[in-house]
């Protein structure tokens, strides 16, 4: 339903864009209806930039974004507005997502004004009532209040409700629960699961691997703007093949295991020849020696000033793709 093909994004830096920074580097991925895809990466991995490009809040530098068969990466005006009827986003900070000088109703009123102006007051209320029920919001507790009077969980639910008032087909959920408390975040996550069963496609952007593992059908691991590993969530988490994915997974704090206590996961080596000629003989494509992830040691980042020719991902098993090592 939504696909990205070779999407890159570079930002101009310096006076009149004399230098540039490559934030997203040749990313291709797709999301099917009724599917939650997690986009997982650390800070600076370009995950939010991808979300913003899908939402057309940022223009793509190259590549295409296709939604239901039409290339949307150049839409403007009416076409863009029609696109927003079907594709919406929810962001990380619920308090920044509302205009603080208005009550929370304002967010809904904007949608009504722009898209549902022909609805009678009665029809609008009927629709609103049913949508609020879907997101488990008590209208009396929430409507007419100012953002700072509500909890983060309520605000995020209401933003999801706002999107559902439209003919929503695809939702970009950018870190939507990372600012919520543990006891309420899981219910918002479950709400995404409910929407999925109604046929919505969801791109769930997060830095938290455990959340990605919980909610998503497929997982994409990003590093420095490029995909290092992607596939069915069970395969990526159960059989991580890229050293970076492994290092990330081994650094995730767990409730029932301490760091270092868990046995090193044994993964089958990448089938011979699939990661062409980048590693020394005798070293399988995916070794158990973890590459220290970015930030663990102060490494000099590889130059990110020009889009490099990326080697294609290698399919090591059904629906499980890994970037050749030495590339990311």
């Amino acid at each position: 339903m939504l696909r990205l093909d070779h999407v890159s994004k570079s930002f101009g830096l310096g006076a009149f864009g004399s230098r540039s920074f490559l934030a997203v580097d040749d990313v291709s991925l797709r999301v099917a209806p009724g599917e939650v895809v997690s986009l997982i990466g650390e800070s600076g991995s370009g995950k939010s930039t991808i979300g913003k490009m899908i939402l057309r809040l940022l223009p793509v530098s190259s590549g295409s974004i296709t939604f239901q068969g039409e290339d949307v990466s150049t839409h403007t005006g009416k076409a863009l507005k029609a696109y927003y009827r079907r594709v919406q986003g929810v962001f990380q900070d619920p308090f920044s997502s509302y205009n603080p000088i208005f009550t929370v109703d304002h967010a809904l009123d904007l949608v009504r004004r722009e898209y549902l102006g022909d609805l009678s007051g009665q029809e609008w209320r009927r629709r609103l009532t049913s949508v609020l029920e879907t997101v488990s919001i008590n209208a009396g507790e929430v409507l007419g209040k100012y953002p700072h009077q509500l909890s983060g969980g309520q605000l995020q639910r209401l933003l999801i409700a706002r999107a559902l008032m439209l003919d929503l087909r695809f939702l970009v959920a950018d870190e939507i629960i990372s600012m919520l408390d543990a006891s309420t975040r899981i219910d918002v996550l479950n709400l995404l699961g409910d929407l999925k069963t109604r046929g919505l496609g969801i791109l769930f952007i997060t830095h938290d691997l455990s959340l990605g593992n919980y909610i998503s059908d497929r997982t994409v691991i990003l590093r420095h703007g490029a995909v290092v590993e992607m596939g069915a969530t069970g395969l990526v988490f159960g059989n991580p093949c890229h050293p970076y994915t492994r290092a990330l997974l081994s650094a995730v704090p767990q409730l029932h295991a301490r760091w270092g206590a868990a046995p090193e996961q044994q993964a089958p080596p990448v089938p011979g020849g699939s990661a062409p000629g980048r590693q020394a003989p005798g070293t399988p494509g995916a070794t158990t020696t973890a590459v220290p992830p970015a930030g663990l040691v102060a490494t000099v980042e590889r130059s990110r000033t020009a889009p490099g020719r990326r080697a294609a991902l290698v399919e090591i098993e059904d629906d499980h793709f890994v970037a050749p090592t030495g590339n990311g």
């Binding site: 809040l57 986003g89 904007l110």
Partner: peptide
């Protein structure tokens, strides 16, 4: 830079 501006854009304003 605040998210509500992005959401206003997403609302077609």
């Amino acid at each position: 830079a605040r998210d509500f501006v992005d959401l206003a854009r997403l609302s077609g304003l």
